[in-house]
Amino acid sequence: MRAAVSLALLVALLVVLPHSAAWFHAWQPDVSHPLYSRHSFFALTLSHVGLVVAATSIAVAVGLGLGIVATRPAGRSLLPTVRAVAVIGQTVPPVAVLAIAVPLLGFGAAPTLLALALYGVLPVLGQTMVGLDQVPKPVLHAADGMGYGRWRRLLDVELPLAAGPIMTGVRLSAIVSVGTATIGSAVGATTLGSPIVEGLVGNNTAYVVQGSLLVGALALTIDAALAAVERWIRRGQS
């Protein structure tokens, strides 16, 4: 429901904004170019979503993998170290990760992707460890008693039972990515933040409003869609 409303809002903005030059001109008469035109809003949205999807996919693969390794008997001794990385890493602001990626990879989409993926790992990793730790011991013993192997127990019992918390981590990761990708336009990535940054630099409030409205609607859509997935996964679980 909420997802549908936000998606409708996003689509409406994408359809209406390219034809709204007259309105922005009426609101800001002294601005000569009232409509951001370097890239189409649709292209900006696509590239923004592309960055977030790519980064979140990497984050899920790495975070889930590390979380599983650290909760296996052979890897248990790594758990405190992995947990410390996740906890200390969370105190590092996303902007800082973005700034550190620039000297490594230069300007453009690459440092933004690296920063998004690195930072996105933390919520997935943390929630994977929480979820796998929450699986009740009796359930594990039952699986062992039924002759489940290590892999089958993981895939058929532990991961389905931990899916709710893991999905929470995925959602957190994606939302932080949407926000950080917006700032990524300050280091040269082409995202919905580009009109905002250009508007701030050039004192063009119309650009700022156009970028902000779109990225706000996009963030709400992604959050609502992932929240719906999370509710669906958690259905039947208390």
């Binding site: 926000g179 917006t182 700032i183 905002i196 508007g199 700022v208 409003v209 970028g211 963030a219």
Partner: peptide, 17 residues
């Protein structure tokens, strides 16, 4: 909670006007 999902740069920039 809704505000929490709005990207920080957008919220900062929108408040200028």
């Amino acid at each position: 909670a809704f505000l929490q999902t709005v990207p920080s740069l957008a919220l900062f920039a929108l408040l200028i006007a």
